[in-house]
Design a protein around this nucleic acid. Structure first.
Lengths: 137, 137
DNA sequence: TATTACCCTACTAAATTAATAGAGTTTTCA
DNA sequence: TGAAAACTCTATTAATTTAGTAGGGTAATA
């Protein structure tokens, strides 16, 4: 299941991407328009800022804004930051690899074999989608 | 993340599929060979029996066995029974569909758009794999 | 008829998620 | 220069899910 954090983060990014100018948008506006708890959204946007997706401006007229164009923002990167590993098991993860305590032979493991394919096909989807591709306007 | 239930269930199915004859295999044997808590495995095999994947035989010489050949067992069905929805959000689920409370327009939703593609590509993988395809032997 | 092995219910510890609360800090504009 | 606007940070918590554990019960077979 996709976490609410990821869902809200994606919606917020999409909201920012569909702005016509690059003026900062307040948290409260995004929260209201996208039906997200403002406090929760606050923490999500903060993490997107710390990972280089968003910039922020304080004070009156402040808010959050995209640091890159929507075309430059790959879903692969967004998903890794918001949701974490793309793989369903750590033993097939590219960025979060871990061995399984139980499995004696990874290569012979049927779960491994299946989940490797799932990872690849999911990655393929993320690689083919930028923020530009998933917004309506 | 894949649940342990699914992981163990898949391993148990694979173990049964790689038996040379069709004799029932005891829970204790599978649990030991695949490093699974026996009691936990018991409940998993039970659910696989109730959903028509396995048959069981009681008494001495009893155990679990596959009801179909490995070629006939699709990962799509196995995953739905063990893990539940294949989709990452209910609003793109074929078998477990639910509307989102927040989303006013599903078609315009960027999360929906992305997750629809992920669902399709994941389903494609499951459709292309039977139990036969993921066992070593 | 005793043994083996499946069947079932209920409980629980740990982890994760999705917030909530509240205080603090910085910036900007009047 | 000061007050409002807006971001920043820490800590806590309720709910849910997961991954078991415990223990007794029932059925079938040699």
């Amino acid at each position: 299941m996709l976490s609410k954090k990821t869902k809200y983060g994606l919606k917020a990014l999409a909201y920012l991407a569909s702005q016509k100018d690059k003026k900062p948008v307040q948290i409260s506006e995004i929260a209201e328009k996208e039906n997200i708890s403002q406090k929760f959204l606050e923490s999500i946007l903060l993490s997107l800022r710390k990972t280089g997706f968003l910039g922020s401006k304080k004070g009156k007229g402040g808010g959050y804004y995209l640091l890159k164009t929507p075309e430059e923002i790959s879903m692969t990167d967004v998903m890794r930051v918001l949701e974490g590993p793309i793989s369903m098991v750590p033993c097939v993860s590219l960025n979060f690899y871990e061995t399984c305590d139980d499995c004696p032979d990874e290569q012979a493991c049927s779960v491994h074999k299946l989940m490797l394919q799932v990872r690849d096909s999911t990655l393929e989807v993320y690689r083919n989608n930028t923020l530009r591709d998933i917004i309506s306007k």
